[in-house]
Design a protein around this nucleic acid. Structure first.
Length: 815
RNA sequence: GCCGGGAUGGCGAAAUGGCAGACGCGGAGCACUCAAAAUGCUUUGUCGAAAGACGUGUGGGUUCAAGUCCCACUCUCGGCACCA
């Protein structure tokens, strides 16, 4: 074979990259562009070293979608940036004695070069980097907008504390009692911290999930629903002996109020401490000891499922409002201080936890629902006075109505969701734009003084020590109060990096703007994001926060939509030999090695072809070498086309044309349905048909061969942009296969004149034969019954029924 | 414990209730070659020489017809988990 017929991956890559840099086919900001708009967004990377196999999968799949819509004639906005603030940069910097800034920006440069080579259809004029002051000044601006509206506030409470990272964590960052970053056991610490008032939006965050049904993975929707965790029930007031104010409890089962035989308050609540205040000293000291022990324990111990219930009696009594009964008040750690009211009515007969507690401390149990004949737990009520005989729903309603009439209770709902703690005691983040003044209190930094830039890390001790390193930056932290001018101090904490990613999709619309966070008019045209692509690891955190920000921005009047991401695709993970890749496991596959060995196109194609995008890929099970082989085969076919561009294809080989147009019919719906692997399979079928035609009767000069080769090039451009572009050139076209477009399928070529009919006897396939598509039911039945194979299968049995679905099928049932 | 997925050849996987296993990997064979690689072609669910039988985790059901729908179960992977 001569040299010019060799498929040389490296040469092709080197050839096209500079040409694309010049041509900018994916510039989404061309003046006078009238194409309809489409916003396709990949979750932006964190710059921790070079790109890895996981990135390669995510960006390959996102690019298939972006390139598909570009081929369909859309002006596709497909941007990329870096989520570059955060702990790993800081920890790496401490470890290596470097500035987090240098480490971060070096990694960005490396990832950027890798991405360019990976040839995604990014618009390189819209790059954003969250650690740039030009970006994070708008974090600060948004923070102050939130602050103005009471959506950012400071409170003192027991917060999650990671003793290793030496910083607080949001609820969402605590996974099974462990820090999501470093797996240290999370403890509690009382601190004054900044929060965003997500709970104000709990109902909308939950209810609007319904509008995403079908367009987001069901798994993500259910995880979000679970996380928000709305429950309906009632608040009930219990009078307390010797206390002026009643104590309110929250319950989802007001119907079981007659079975409430004691009350439990969270041991770490203010209420508990207050209640024991007046109790005898013995009780008081027992309580203190128990509280001390609780504070020392961490969530891991607290949440162990098989753990026995613990608690102490407070020495106080409450009065059950429905029957006037005097019930003891206990304190325990199984009641949470920050859910509901921090106090519960215990119904040991019908709540497993209360039951365990009652058994442990020998407290009375009263059955109020007869569940003997009803495993669903909705038997008739008893021991409930006038409510006896009623079932759950009716009993609840009537009891709540009675409480309401007496002013002792009301309907209520509760959420699992807590407000978002955004303060972090670390250096590498957005400074919180608040100044603390002894006379004026919290003073927002005036808008014209934004951004509050991070001071240089030089001379600062970044080692975690429980307070922000920024506190030691004397020149930075000490300022004059903007209101009174007296000496004051900047807030030295930085924001959680999830603040950065909560609105970045809007910033891509004007990443360099110094006058606004994002352009309101352009947002109307481009946003919300039509297609979001990223890992399921962000199913709760990032997506919930971004949804919250979107709703706030909507309420402020800056955007006209309430959900940021219309459609969501969660790609799976890339594994090796059955487990996640890691250096310590020794199963790390380096992306750069794979790209060097097989080429960019083959790696990308492998990601798309391996299976459904949401499934994990085990790199040991797939074949990038096979992908490379296929690409070479497709490329060689383009080489073998000898007709001129623009040749009249209608005279071409019928069979090949049919294959081409049936591909054109199938391809679009497959890609739009995320069935990329099947789309690639269809391309392979077309290449096989093309090869056959070139080597067979049709030959390389047949116009149908050109038609098929061009369709292959365009289809392939979604997965293998280099090979596709090179094929396009071989076929005599100017560079630009990415925007060449796919022709519509010519349906007239797809009309079949004959079809293979099948005959089943008792559900088993017995014969098949070619028939005209216009065959009548009677003719088909006759043909089936006269078939030898069918006769043999029927034997002596009597026919009970014959179903004919002409022209495809005859189904014979015997008696 | 609760809520969701999933289970199809040696492997990754296809399949609007209508020919199970498309497409690919791997295997076998042939051609080309002095030879190998590369390439092209043929073949490849299991058992069987063949006819044929069996076959989509298990057991039932609906249907002329079930991988697909219904019921029960097993295994497996996620998520949540003292939220009253």
């Amino acid at each position: 074979m001569s040299n010019e017929h060799e498929y040389d991956v490296t040469a092709i890559q080197e050839k096209w990259l500079p040409i694309w840099d010049e041509l900018k086919p994916f510039d989404s900001n061309k003046p006078g562009d009238t194409r309809p708009k489409k916003y396709v967004l990949d979750m932006f990377p964190y710059p921790s070293g070079d790109l890895h196999m996981g990135h390669a999968e995510a960006y390959a799949l996102g690019d298939v979608i972006a390139r598909y819509w570009a081929q369909k004639g859309y002006n596709v906005l497909h941007p990329i940036g870096w989520d570059s603030f955060g702990l790993p940069a800081e920890n790496a910097a401490i470890k290596r004695g470097l500035d987090p800034k240098g480490w971060t920006y070096d990694n960005i440069a490396q990832q950027r070069a890798s991405m360019r080579r990976y040839a995604c259809s990014f618009d390189w004029d819209r790059v954003l980097v969250t650690s740039d002051p030009i970006y994070y000044r708008w974090n600060q601006w948004l923070f102050l907008e939130f602050y103005k509206r009471g959506l950012a506030y400071r409170k003192n409470s027991a917060v999650n504390w990671c003793p290793s990272c030496q910083t607080v964590l949001a609820n969402e960052q605590v996974v099974q009692g462990l820090c999501e970053r470093c797996d240290s056991v999370v403890t509690k610490k009382a601190l004054t911290q900044w929060y965003f008032k997500v709970t104000d939006y709990a109902d909308r965050l939950l209810d609007d999930l319904d509008t995403l049904e079908g367009n987001w993975p069901g798994k993500v929707l259910s995880m979000q629903r679970n996380w928000i965790g709305r429950s309906y029930g009632a608040e009930v007031d219990f009078e307390i002996e010797g206390r002026a104010e009643p104590v309110t409890v929250y319950t989802t089962r007001p119907d079981t109020l007659f079975g409430a035989t004691f009350m439990v308050v969270a041991v770490d609540s203010a209420l508990a401490s207050e209640l024991v205040e007046e109790s005898e000293s013995e009780i008081h000291s027992a309580f203190d000891a128990y509280l001390e022990q609780t504070k020392k324990s961490n969530d891991i111990e607290r949440l162990a499922t098989d753990r026995e219930k613990t608690g102490v009696f407070t020495g106080r009594y409450a009065i059950n409002p429905v029957n006037g009964e005097r019930i003891p008040i206990w304190a325990s750690d199984y009641v949470l201080a920050d859910y509901g009211t921090g106090a519960i009515m215990a119904v040991p007969a019908h709540d497993a936890r209360d039951g365990e507690f009652a058994a442990k401390f020998d407290l009375p149990v009263r059955v109020v629902v007869d569940n003997q004949d009803d495993i669903a737990g909705d038997g008739p009520h008893l021991n409930s006075g006038e409510f006896d005989g009623l079932h759950k729903e009716e009993a609840s309603e009537k009891i709540v109505a009675m409480l309401e009439a007496k002013g002792k209770g009301k309907k209520a709902k509760n959420f699992r969701l807590r407000d978002w703690l955004i303060s972090r005691q670390r250096y590498w983040g957005t400074p919180i734009p608040i100044i603390h003044c002894d006379s004026c209190g919290e003073v927002p930094v005036p808008a014209d003084q934004l951004p509050v830039e991070l001071p240089s890390a030089e001379g600062l001790d970044l080692k975690p020590k429980g307070s922000s390193p920024l506190g030691a930056a004397e020149d930075w932290v000490n300022v004059a109060c903007p209101t009174c001018g007296k000496p004051a101090k900047r807030d030295s904490d930085t924001m959680d990096t999830f603040v950065d990613s909560s609105w970045y999709f809007l910033r891509y619309l004007s990443p360099k703007s110094e006058t606004e966070a994002f352009p309101v008019e352009a947002a109307k045209e481009w946003a919300p994001v039509d297609q979001y692509v990223g890992g399921v690891t962000h199913a709760i955190l990032h997506l919930l926060y971004a949804r919250f920000f979107t709703k706030v921005l909507h309420d402020i009047g800056l955007i006209d939509f309430e959900e940021p991401f219309t459609r969501l695709l969660n790609q799976g993970m890339v594994q090796m030999n059955g487990s996640a890749m890691s250096k310590s496991r020794g199963n790390l596959v380096r992306l750069s090695d794979q790209l060097g060995e097989h080429g960019v196109d083959a790696v990308r194609l492998t990601m798309a072809f391996a299976g459904p995008p949401e499934d994990d890929i085990d790199w040991a099970d797939v074949s990038p070498a096979g992908s490379a082989k296929f690409l070479a085969r497709a490329w060689r076919a383009a080489n073998d086309v000898t007709s001129a561009p623009g040749v009249d294809v209608t005279t071409g080989n019928k069979e090949l044309r049919k294959a081409t147009h049936s591909f054109l019919r199938d391809f679009g719906p497959l890609i739009e349905g995320f069935k990329f692997n099947v789309g690639v399979a269809k391309l392979m079928e077309l290449v096989n048909a093309l090869r056959k035609a070139i080597d067979g009767e049709a030959g390389g000069a047949d116009p149908a061969v050109r038609e098929a080769a061009e369709v292959v090039a365009v289809g392939l451009s979604l997965f293998a942009p280099y090979t596709a572009e090179d094929m396009w050139e071989l076929l005599g076209h100017k560079p630009g296969v990415a925007l060449a477009g796919l022709p519509a399928a010519d349906e007239s070529l797809l009309v079949e004149s004959s079809i293979v009919a099948i005959v089943q006897v008792d559900g088993k396939l017995r014969d098949k034969f070619e028939v005209s598509v216009s065959i009548t039911a009677d003719e088909l039945r006759e043909k089936a019954l006269s078939s030898d194979a069918v006769k043999r299968a029927l034997g002596d049995s009597e026919i009970a029924n014959i179903i004919v679905r002409e022209p495809k099928l005859v189904s014979i049932a015997t008696k």
